[in-house]
């Protein structure tokens, strides 16, 4: 038996230094990559910012107030595009917010059995999965002819109101069809995140409200929606961020004319459509001017997204 005890070794050996270093190296590697992912955002700001410097020096703040895009004389300004970006997004929100909230309520109440609810949630999310360019193609073929006819009627009846003050263009392209397709594209964001905010509310809220004699809708309007308000606002902000930067569908549908019109039936353009159309053929100072407008769009969407993220985060923490 003595020989056995001589041969036996301690069951646990100290780790070799290779093992230890490998382990430490691995943790550092994952940290490095995690920092790299976050760093991309900063890298992006730097790259777009540096590209924009020549145009910033030449045009300064006046870039925002000029509506000239003249590649021959190198005179650039992005006012119509800024205007179009904001207006098309606002149109999208006007349609998407009420419908999105309706969907969120429809899917957070107990109208349907859970199994069917889950399927509808999935279908609504699919709306966000369809590529933007496919929406654009569909918009040109299906939506634009319909909107042209409807727009003509609106102009005949309400032409005296400035926002309907022009007849639809010959092609039918314009702010309204672009805004409508944007509404479809951002609707899933509003519906899904608002629903999350609503279903994560503690059930006691509803029980208390109903116990005090509130009807379903009194509970929703007076208790549940106010309680989920910051989540809903976060959802709307995220949707706004998406709408502001959405490119392909808008480029195909907005008509891309470099003008500012109060009428939503008139064509317009957005920063993203400007980039999509001009960037590939641009050189010299025009590239820098495009980078400048890209930086503006980047800054706006960053601001909106950071605010949205903070709001949504607060909800998740509750």
């Amino acid at each position: 038996m003595t020989s056995l005890s001589k041969d036996s070794q301690p069951a646990v050996q100290p780790r070799s230094s290779l093992d230890k270093n490998l382990d430490r190296g691995f943790i550092w590697l994952t940290l490095l990559f995690a920092l790299a992912v976050a760093g991309v955002l900063i890298w992006m700001t730097v790259v777009v910012g540096i590209g924009a410097i020549p145009a910033m020096l030449k045009y300064g703040v006046g870039f925002i107030f000029s509506s000239n895009w003249d590649a021959v004389n190198d005179e650039y300004g992005a006012l119509p595009q800024l205007y179009g970006t904001l207006v098309s997004s606002i149109i999208a929100l006007i349609f998407a917010v009420p419908i999105g909230l309706g969907v969120a309520l429809f899917l957070s109440e107990d109208y349907l059995p859970t199994r069917i609810q889950v399927v509808i949630v999935f279908l609504v999310e699919l709306l966000a999965a369809i590529p933007s360019v496919v929406y654009g193609l569909w918009g040109i073929a299906v939506l634009v002819p319909i909107m042209k006819a409807i727009g003509g009627q609106i102009y005949n009846l309400f032409g005296w109101i400035p926002i309907f003050g022009t007849p639809p263009s010959a092609t039918g392209l314009g702010m309204l069809p672009a805004g409508l397709v944007l509404a479809v594209m951002v609707l899933p964001t509003i519906a899904a995140i608002s629903r999350d905010a609503l279903i994560s509310l503690p059930p006691d809220l509803r029980q208390a409200a109903v116990g005090l004699g509130a009807t379903r809708w009194e509970a929703i309007i007076k208790i549940l929606v106010p309680a989920a308000f910051s989540g809903i606002v976060g959802a709307i902000m995220l949707a706004l961020g998406r709408a502001l930067g959405e490119t392909m569908a808008v480029t195909l549908l907005i008509g891309n004319s470099n003008n500012i019109s109060a009428s939503i039936l008139a064509p317009g353009s957005t920063i993203s459509s400007l980039l999509a159309l001009k960037f590939a053929e641009a050189d010299g100072l025009q590239v820098s001017a495009l980078m400048y407008s890209a930086l503006l769009l980047f800054a706006i969407t960053l601001l909106v997204n950071v605010l949205a993220e903070m709001l949504v985060r607060r909800v998740q923490r509750i």
């Binding site: 790259v47 930067g245 993203s272 980039l275 960037f279 980047f298 960053l302 997204n305 993220e309």
Partner: peptide
């Protein structure tokens, strides 16, 4: 999360 909200056209510019 903020990176996932950056418009795809800006990623193209980048």
């Amino acid at each position: 999360n903020v990176l996932s909200g950056v418009p795809s056209i800006i990623v193209g510019v980048f």
